Amino acid sequence: MSTRLTLVQGDITEQDVDAVVNAANSSLLGGGGVDGAIHRRGGPEILAACRALRASHYGKGLPTGQAVATTAGRLPAHHVIHTVGPRWSATEDRSSLLASCYRESLRVAAGLGARTVAFPAISTGIYGWPLEDGARIAVETVRASAPVEIEEVRFVVFDARARTAFAGYVD
């Protein structure tokens, strides 16, 4: 059985899935965009779990391309998988780091026993990654590396522009 890829235009904090992926910053302590929305909607339980991670294994923050899980707090999801995407650069190819965000998040999700995972368009917001390229890397990486245990990967995008970019790869 292969993993089903779906595309939804909507709010990632409203997804009823086993694990929702957070496009986090390395501090793990909240921020803007998806990160801020997940922390606001999920409540203080997520921040407390992130602070505990900072106090133990990630004193210097979560490295770019890596992923770690916490509680989902008040979100409908069961877990939040935090991953730090790379900032886009016109002079340096960082696509392997972006692909690593998806691979590592899927690895963590499988370790949690997740069957359904929702991803945002990592790095395509404030980190400046071109949307079309970000969509291509996301879908190609998920197709190539989704563990068989994961039944559905849902790409949750914020607007019609992102939906159009992802639709060319998901459909």
Score class of each variant (00 low, 15 high):
17 V>H: 13
60 K>D: 15
156 V>E: 12
42 G>H: 09
8 V>C: 02
33 G>C: 04
46 I>S: 04
108 V>L: 08
129 W>Y: 00
70 T>L: 10
165 A>S: 07
12 I>C: 09
46 I>M: 05
109 A>T: 04
145 S>G: 00
32 G>T: 09
5 L>V: 03
133 D>V: 00
127 Y>K: 02
85 G>D: 05
139 V>N: 06
170 V>R: 15
9 Q>R: 15
58 Y>G: 07
119 F>W: 06
24 A>Y: 12
21 V>F: 11
122 I>D: 05
89 S>P: 08
168 G>L: 06
134 G>F: 00
62 L>A: 05
89 S>E: 14
95 S>P: 07
169 Y>T: 09
45 E>D: 10
171 D>H: 15
100 S>G: 12
155 F>Y: 08
66 Q>C: 11
13 T>W: 09
63 P>G: 10
27 S>R: 15
47 L>Y: 13
126 I>K: 08
26 S>K: 11
71 T>Y: 14
18 D>A: 03
143 R>M: 00
15 Q>Y: 08
133 D>H: 08
137 I>C: 00
27 S>E: 13
126 I>D: 04
101 C>Y: 09
16 D>L: 08
105 S>P: 08
153 V>G: 06
69 A>P: 10
105 S>L: 05
163 R>N: 09
4 R>V: 05
112 L>N: 12
98 L>W: 13
45 E>F: 06
38 I>C: 04
150 I>Y: 12
44 P>A: 05
105 S>F: 02
32 G>C: 07
165 A>C: 03
77 A>Q: 13
16 D>S: 12
124 T>M: 00
2 S>V: 02
132 E>K: 06
80 V>Q: 15
110 A>D: 12
165 A>N: 10
86 P>S: 11
142 V>H: 03
165 A>T: 09
154 R>N: 10
55 A>P: 02
63 P>Q: 15
15 Q>A: 07
38 I>H: 12
119 F>H: 05
115 R>E: 13
85 G>N: 14
121 A>G: 03
64 T>W: 01
93 D>P: 11
154 R>I: 06
90 A>E: 15
71 T>W: 13
132 E>Y: 00
126 I>S: 04
80 V>N: 15
94 R>K: 15
72 A>M: 12
78 H>W: 13
149 E>D: 10
11 D>W: 11
137 I>K: 06
116 T>E: 10
86 P>Y: 03
80 V>K: 15
144 A>V: 03
62 L>F: 08
13 T>C: 02
106 L>T: 14
28 L>M: 14
114 A>D: 08
99 A>K: 12
23 A>N: 14
68 V>W: 15
108 V>C: 04
43 G>C: 05
9 Q>V: 07
137 I>N: 03
139 V>Q: 06
162 A>V: 05
129 W>P: 00
148 V>P: 03
29 L>E: 08
138 A>Q: 02
111 G>C: 01
6 T>L: 07
149 E>A: 04
38 I>L: 11
59 G>I: 05
73 G>E: 12
91 T>P: 14
152 E>P: 00
123 S>R: 05
36 G>Y: 12
164 T>P: 03
93 D>R: 15
85 G>Y: 07
48 A>G: 09
108 V>F: 09
40 R>W: 06
